[in-house]
Design a protein around this nucleic acid. Structure first.
Length: 218
DNA sequence: AAGTGTGTCAACCGCGAGCGC
DNA sequence: AGCGCTCGCGGTTGACACACT
């Protein structure tokens, strides 16, 4: 379910991300942060636009991203917040730690919207038959919409990922450009050797991350 | 088995806000 | 004030997976 890789007129790769690209981006950002999305792909050895890198990191690679099924509480929060503020996906995402605006947007369009429409339709039908059962239906919808989750933050606190991020973020190399890791002239490398070169540097970083049992395979 | 329709979701696009010069 | 740049947001697209005929 991904776009086939293509190249634009500037030679920038588009479409699905490979594992190697993910590893490069993840390792670079965990080490140096995203100090400038436009410049980042150049330093990270990626033939991607900054925009594409940012999207990949924000929506997929961030260590605190939660993948998988939504809980009833999360669904309720989405429904309720959307009722209050409209399609403010970033705002909704802020209420659901680990979920991204893009994911929530997709989830709304593919699951929740239909669910709500279905409920509304059945409620309308029942209204024609009996106003009493209709009221109950609406109450159920309202109840779902007004039930909020107050316990979204417990999952990540104290996790290995968190301590890892805190650890890395406090190191003094955090803001240093990637090229400073080497005395070699990064830009003098060919694209092929550049790739090998970055992988060589990222290997220890990835091993360091794996030591914390961080699972990047999902 | 093959063709077609539908669902899903990663990725792209365009726009506006914010900031520095 | 005006320009250029970066970033983030929301809407949309595209391609794969699966269901259906």
């Amino acid at each position: 379910m991904v776009r086939a890789p293509t190249y634009d007129e500037k030679g920038m790769k588009r479409g699905a991300w490979s594992k190697e690209e993910d590893d490069k981006l993840r390792a670079y950002i965990l080490r140096y942060g995203h100090w400038n999305w436009t410049q980042l792909p150049k330093f990270a050895g990626l033939s991607r636009s900054g925009k594409s890198c940012r999207l990949r990191w924000m929506n997929y690679l961030r260590p605190d991203i939660k993948h998988g099924n939504y809980t009833k509480e999360e669904e309720d929060t989405i429904i309720k917040t959307r009722q209050q503020h409209g399609n403010k996906w970033a705002l909704i995402a802020a209420k659901l730690p680990g979920r991204t605006d893009n994911e929530i947007k997709n989830y709304w369009h593919t699951h929740l919207k239909k669910k709500i429409d279905k409920k509304t339709d059945s409620a309308d039908q029942e209204h024609e038959e009996t106003s009493q059962s209709d009221q109950a239906e609406r109450q159920e919808i309202n109840l779902a919409a007004t039930t909020s989750s107050s316990d979204h933050h417990h999952h990540a606190v104290g996790s290995p990922v968190n301590s890892l991020c805190e650890d890395i973020s406090t190191r003094d190399f955090w803001t240093q450009p990637f090229v400073s890791d080497s005395e070699n002239d990064y830009y003098s490398l060919s694209s092929d050797s550049c790739y090998e070169y970055t992988i060589d540097i990222f290997d220890p970083v990835m091993q360091e991350l794996q030591a914390f049992d961080v699972d990047f395979s999902s």
